[in-house]
Design a protein around this nucleic acid. Structure first.
Lengths: 117, 117
DNA sequence: ACGATACATGAATAATTGTTCAGACGTTCA
DNA sequence: TGAACGTCTGAACAATTATTCATGTATCGT
């Protein structure tokens, strides 16, 4: 002799709905996810940390994190398409820098959080 | 007739050294990486966003992101070991909440950054 | 004590992400 | 123009991460 159609189980429907309604827009959410993905790798963090100090070319960056030029180039492409870094060509070289101040904030905030563990 | 021992290539040694010396400690860097990894998934972002508003039990959270209890439980374990969430048992249920304010800051900062893309 | 409910876990599989390797492109300099 | 250098790219392979499924543990109501 059940009272309601749905098996109510333990789920608090109204709570769930309330929280779902407060969700950020999908595009925002996926945007943030992509940014965090970019920050979720130690070498990319090193690259970004380096670039927060000075502009550098690809082979400097490769030397920095001790991987092949190719590997760095792949990583830089990811960072570029995620709009975390920008680049300019100067002769044979390509110099990278952070796209904006925001990136550095996130990076610092993450490191600060890690400090407290 | 080479001047120096190392093939200098294009690498700016002094620049690279300077930047390497400024690197954050390894433990910090890896700590930050782990945190960002946790944030690098849309469902985990949803979970954290929800928990930034109210404490919730596992089956609420599963309903929220529309995956199995088991899958959510696995994700919650990751968040727990990364110290992003805490939990308390109340009878049969286990209620989760954010571990501290910091997490919410990071989340908000990420969403804000995504807004500008 | 028993069955039912809420949650957790390990192992296998599926999906995603990173690296390497071979080669292409663009620029410089002879 | 062509050889050398710095960088980029695609495809194959390696490594990491997420989900499922089956089963385990804790608590409650009877």
């Amino acid at each position: 002799m059940e009272k309601d159609v749905c098996a109510t189980s333990c789920v608090n429907r109204s709570r769930v709905e309330r929280v779902i309604n407060a969700f950020p827009e999908e595009t925002l959410l996926y945007g943030a996810t992509e940014i965090f993905k970019m920050l979720a790798d130690p070498n990319r963090l090193r690259l970004l940390h380096a670039l927060s100090q000075e502009e550098m070319c690809v082979c400097d960056l490769a030397a920095l994190v001790e991987v092949s030029d190719s590997a760095v180039s792949h990583q830089l492409r990811l960072l570029r398409t995620a709009r975390l870094v920008k680049c300019r060509r100067a002769g044979k070289m390509v110099y990278y820098r952070l796209d904006d101040q925001h990136v550095e904030n996130l990076l610092q905030e993450g490191l600060r959080h890690a400090e407290e563990g």
